[in-house]
Design a protein around this nucleic acid. Sequence first.
DNA 1: ATACATTGTGCACACGATTACACAAACGGT
DNA 2: ACCGTTTGTGTAATCGTGTGCACAATGTAT
Lengths: 332, 332
Amino acid sequence: MSGMSRRRITSKELAKLAGVSSATISRAFSPDSRIGSATRDRILAVAREHGYQPNAIARSLNNQRSRLVALVVNAIGNPCEAEEQQLLVHRLQARQLLPIILCCADHSDRLQLMRLASTYQVDHVVVFSDMVSMQDAVDIFHTTKPIIVSFEPLDNENVSSIRIDGAEAADEIIGKIVRDGKKRFAYLSGTNSSWIDKLRRKWFADALTKRGLAFEAQAFGDYSYDSGFKEAVLLLHRDKVDAIICGNDVMAIGARDAARRVLGKNTPDDIAIVGQDGIAMAAWDCNDLTTLSLDHVAFIDAVVELIERHDAEIEGPHSITLTCTARWGSTA
Amino acid sequence: MSGMSRRRITSKELAKLAGVSSATISRAFSPDSRIGSATRDRILAVAREHGYQPNAIARSLNNQRSRLVALVVNAIGNPCEAEEQQLLVHRLQARQLLPIILCCADHSDRLQLMRLASTYQVDHVVVFSDMVSMQDAVDIFHTTKPIIVSFEPLDNENVSSIRIDGAEAADEIIGKIVRDGKKRFAYLSGTNSSWIDKLRRKWFADALTKRGLAFEAQAFGDYSYDSGFKEAVLLLHRDKVDAIICGNDVMAIGARDAARRVLGKNTPDDIAIVGQDGIAMAAWDCNDLTTLSLDHVAFIDAVVELIERHDAEIEGPHSITLTCTARWGSTA
DNA sequence: ATACATTGTGCACACGATTACACAAACGGT
DNA sequence: ACCGTTTGTGTAATCGTGTGCACAATGTAT
């Protein structure tokens, strides 16, 4: 019965059963290799009968290719990242690549976690998290020559990056808010100070400068709803701002709730709130967020393209630039 | 410089550099093995200098233990699952286990995906998805004798399961809604018909029966906000129900939005809406959902306990039962 | 001083596949 | 009939570690 858990059968054992050598077994499972079609069919039949599948660990050792991909992320629980992760996992699976998730926000020593993954000879590394520096990632993974895809550009032959440009869309959004009469702006960061956070803040800061304004206050959260809620209370109460630009959509929802619940202020009349990322949840009827949106499909397309270039052994690092767009809701 | 991508150094090469045999290198990295402490220190120093780390793929092949864990999930983008996934990934990482995510909702042939993962000799398999049958999972993974943890119990020596009991909490919730005067109930499933979906529906159906009532209508979504929204419109408009029990919290939020936006009906006065799972987002101020809640920490504690029992080679399948609680919000 | 237990290290094989090379058989062209 | 090419298969080495066994060196007890 299928309930019994027999030991996994090996290629050599199957060879004996099929009356061939183990080399022939291997060839039966390699699409284009010299083998008689009758032999192959017979082997595949016997293999199916005995539940044989080639051992991917042994194959990886020989091949020097594991078909594993390390995904370095902040968290999987946060919808602002999960949407992209989901798309990428989908695309990887379609290519028979298996993703290993490294969750930074959880792990006290992120470098140790990356070192662990690097011992598994991952073929590629995709860094979504802004909690690890690219230099650290390169130092740890450089030995396996994987591609490293991320926001933060780094001058290294193994690092390809995806640049995003939201300057124009940020300008558009700030323009609208200023026209609506808002005067005191705050920026609510998602991290203490990462490269991508600084970049995004600069888009909005430049748009303000252009209009003779500047951020009156700045706060730091952790990309979570709770931190958005908590910091927004402070910004609204202590700093009396009337517009908050948030580091992601989830914090923006938290800030909106804080304004409504704690201060009794509503968007967009009393206060303007802007998110970033443009996740599906931001468009839900109950949220209807104004947000600096990135096309997630295009983003993952770019990631996959970089991975494929690397697979095809096209030399050198590459960079792809994507532009954000303003997505209008009722919060600004 | 660290920018250069040298080939990864092997144990034999390091042995030559340190003037020992490769066996001694291996021993230097195995915590309790007979080796002179002076030798070990010297080797570790040379290893650090040359960036050597033992190859986990080769080690797995030799050990017959990969330290990989397959996580079979519906989706990672859906907050209703992501919260538990996040917790589990955290706990696995703390044990130096690496999770491989298999995303069912994405993949057309889920069985093929599981077969692929099984070739990587994963040590454990955790099935969260209700889109694959346990029997299929067992048939595919039985050769590696991993534990399979999931809701759906199965009489198999390799399958341990976590049973959840929400009957009492469902009764409590239905009681409240009936007292509030609601009369026409609908159940909005998350899948066409999975084991766990049927179980959950039964909790509520029993509570209704006890009060001389029954579900007037049933609809099927896909655990997403959009499907919750769409199906709720139908249920409210066509079937004139005034209470909807949803298969998860995200669909409940969608249903609540549909009621408010399309029908102009508000919770809890015009209509009662109940979610399931009890994710953090359900408690956000903008949602404030009444939901049949499962303690996620306790749930993952149970999963980890089952995994540890299996690691310790304690024989036979195990089962742990958890009870759900009612979490009250303003939607019912 | 002798017998014996302990410690540290090397040798060689195993883990399960892939693949360069060798070789026999079959085949086609002149 | 002969030579060259193609096809199919087996042999053996390889990928990088872990570990049982052997053996030398050191320590301990009588």
